[in-house]
Amino acid sequence: MHTTDSSHGKGLGLSLAVGSALAFGGSGVAAKPLIEAGLAPLDVVWLRVAGAALVMLPLAVRHRDLPRRRPALLAGFGLLAVAGVQACYFAAISRIPVGVALLVEYLAPALVLGWVRFVQRRPVTRAAALGVVLAAGGLACVVEVWSGLRFDALGLVLALSAACCQVGYFVLADHGGGEGADPLGVIAYGLLVGAGLLTVVARPWEMDWSVLGGSARMNGAAVPAAVLLGWIVLVATVVAYVTGVVSVRRLSPQVAGVVACLEAVVATVLAWVLLGERLGASQVVGGVVVLAGAFIAQSSAPAKGSAEPLARGEGVVREPAV
């Protein structure tokens, strides 16, 4: 009975993780037309986070005792999972190719694996480690890292900082439910904190707000800018964060981290379909490899509910720990 419940929880967690990757992956397709219409990338990031914070505000009011009980968690989630990832990534792509920055950022699953193994001192199966390696290799093909590669020390540091912030997202999401901290409340306050921090950097009062009243071009077709912004806020942020955090609590951080690599595949496919950006053979092959890595990792790593017994050496692990 316990095995059935565990399998059901793992299956639901995997479905939520895939849904989160799909939602996050659609953000770039909607954001690019807005940027081409005249908004700065940081403007789009601020609109995304601030809009999502406004949507989640009722939940923040409902859990208004959270800042008193878990101030460090909320500050960390807002700083790392919301503002940090976004700001570091956009700063990185201003100095190094987008493909390189994306690949470095998605080294986060490997860093999560290192956190679990060496900081938490929990066993990690060899198959899970192989899944991370496959996913990283597949991402190298998806983003075509060899195209226009150039090394800029600060740019690489910024991209690695984005990866570290993403690790913080998975680790904080994993522990966010402790001591009665509702994950939805954590997300709501995290978005509020992130919006506040990004306001200082983005300076939205200098934004060209008239862009939002017009239309943007998506593969030659005119699309209302407000519709694109609505998609970014509601689907690519609110839905993406909610499903992502809940999935991490049902899976393990390392599994959810590898599945999150699907975001790059989703972004590439949507860019092909909606923006007319063609897929090369190497990108198709890379997408298949990423899928294979995600499947291997999720099918071999212990489910969330079994992590503690395994850490104590109880139960049976089918793959040797590394």
Rank of each mutant, 00 (worst) to 15 (best):
Q254R: 05
E314W: 05
C141N: 10
G38E: 05
P183T: 00
E319G: 00
V29K: 07
G13F: 06
S247A: 15
A222M: 15
W146N: 06
M218E: 04
R95A: 05
G131N: 06
A60R: 05
A226Q: 07
G99K: 07
G230D: 02
L42D: 12
R250C: 10
D208H: 14
L228M: 14
V242S: 09
L291E: 04
R150H: 15
G168I: 04
L34C: 10
G280L: 12
R318P: 05
A135E: 09
E105N: 13
A260H: 06
G315Q: 02
L134E: 01
L12S: 06
V193E: 07
V116W: 01
G131T: 01
R249M: 07
R217C: 11
V284G: 03
G131S: 08
A226T: 15
I96Q: 05
L66C: 10
A297Q: 09
A188V: 01
C88E: 12
V193H: 08
G51K: 04
L80G: 14
V322Y: 00
T199A: 13
R68H: 09
A301S: 12
K32S: 15
F90M: 09
L291R: 06
R117F: 00
M207R: 07
V45L: 15
L191Q: 12
A301C: 09
A281I: 12
V322K: 00
L39P: 10
F295Y: 14
V145T: 10
I96C: 11
C164V: 15
S299V: 08
V112Y: 00
A37W: 07
A40G: 12
V124L: 00
Q86L: 09
G26N: 06
D43Q: 05
G13D: 06
L234I: 12
H63N: 13
P204S: 06
V200A: 12
L57W: 11
S161M: 11
R69I: 04
E314R: 12
A30H: 04
R126G: 01
V227A: 14
G148Y: 13
R249Y: 10
A240F: 01
D182A: 06
C164W: 07
T125E: 00
A101E: 09
V29G: 08
G313F: 00
G148Q: 03
A307P: 14
K304F: 09
N219W: 08
R217V: 12
S282V: 15
S247E: 06
P41H: 04
G131C: 03
H8D: 15
V239F: 14
G213A: 13
A127L: 03
A267Q: 08
W205S: 09
G213F: 12
L73N: 02
A294Y: 01
E105F: 08
A72Y: 03
H8L: 15
V18E: 11
P224Y: 02
C141P: 11
G9T: 05
L279V: 07
A101R: 00
G76Y: 00
I96N: 07
V201R: 04
V235Q: 07
G213E: 05
V143K: 06
G190W: 02
S300E: 04
V157N: 03
A60T: 02
T199E: 04
A294M: 05
A140K: 01
A52M: 15
G177A: 01
A221M: 14
V116L: 02
G137L: 03
S300F: 14
R150V: 11
A292G: 11
W146V: 02
